[in-house]
Design a protein around this nucleic acid. Sequence first.
RNA 1: GACCCUGUCGUCUAAUUGGCCAAGGCACCCGACUUUCUAUCGGGGUAUUGCGGGUUCGAAUCCCGCCAGGGUUGCCA
Length: 436
Amino acid sequence: MTRVRFAPSPTGDLHVGGARTALFNWLFARKTGGTFILRVEDTDGARNTEEAAQGILKGLRWLGLDWDEGPDAGGDYGPYFQSQRKAIYDAYLAKLDAAGRVYTEENGAVRFKFSRTPITVHDLVCGDVAFAATEEPDMTVRRPDGSYIFHFVNVVDDIEMKMTHVFRGEDHLSNTWKHIDLFNAFGTTPPTYAHIPLILNPDGTKMSKRDEGSAVEKSYMNEGFLPDAVFNYLCLLGWTPRTEGEKLSREALTNLFDPAEIHNANARFDMDKCKWFNAQYLRALSPEALLAGCRRFIEAAGYEIKDDVMAAAAVFSVKEKVSLLTEIPAWVHYFFRSDYTYENDVLLKLKAKPENAGLLEAAAAGFLSLAEWTEASIQLAIEDAAKSLAAKPGALMPLLRYALSGQSRGPGVNTIAHLIGQESTLQRIERTLALN
RNA sequence: GACCCUGUCGUCUAAUUGGCCAAGGCACCCGACUUUCUAUCGGGGUAUUGCGGGUUCGAAUCCCGCCAGGGUUGCCA
């Protein structure tokens, strides 16, 4: 039975690199039928906040990375906040003391005596990485105030929580020999390691908290990404399932996942590709699901949704135009209000030709006489109106689009007219004709 | 500085593990279509596989050197 964990430190938002680390752990646990554990490493009282901890849980839940043991989930190896495990660490420190592997400094700090032998890390991703006997000073494991250091608690908890594998960022690789030294000192076998490459900015520099795409909540949840899309993109950053297409379900990704195939080169983040994935997932949504996803963005933009069925059809009609949910309001705002403004070039185009008003009037007359208001009947009415003035439908279509939406781009004109209704369609044409 | 990881189109990755002309996605460019488009359709590979040597009939792949990027070297995690 495999047991893996994601062990974030609550010092800020869930970082995209951390999210991917969690993702690989989750994939491995699900693939092997193992257990995914969430452990909060809040040993640095000065930098950890409850808000950050909650934010990380929120981000993980949004991505659908559910944990089997951890905060809110419980489990047999808790507590899952390191700040609540001091007694356990004290006991383990006593073991090291009994073995003569630690000593106390004058100020009270406790240091672990390195074995000072060569240590090789057997890594699923990086292969065997050998480290010569160290010349570094012995490692501090407990501060003078009695609190413990990351390397120590991390190892103790991996022992206590019976971790079989450790998937973590490659930034930990250089320190892993220290962890193995500790496992050995405790007389335990280290878990199998897999150090995954880091995510870099597009320019190859380290991605920090302020960079685009770094924070899960700020850059994805609030920017209109779909969890499945981000999940899919992150999976393929540093790992390839070698399938025909790249849009793959969680189930498929889980089945295909093989940690040995993870790259050991850092990858640059590509927001365009991530958005492309989002566009793919967005288009696969039902009208109802799409509306559910973008509802908060439409309302935040100040548009009131009175009719859910119409709203769902409206957002559905522009799904091919956007890649993010946040882009939808700008495409559909005229469905929710009649006092939309006309884009500048739209006004110019409306007034460009003297015959435009006549065309619109003919369309209005045609619409007025329609007994049945369907996309098909509207389409016919438009064609008839154009024909009556010896014009092509193509000359009238854009004018109607401008009149009904104030925009030069959007879904089909008959779709717009159908959704806003016969009465509103006539009113909008009238309003537009009155502009002159 | 020392140690560790890594270098294939702009970018994410392929390349039957030393064997056809280095392949695909995203991006990009060109064209077409359409009532519009950031859509759709069609076309285009844009690379001296970081650089220089070496081994070999043959190297992206193996070896050496160099360079570049990233990481670690905390009483941060």
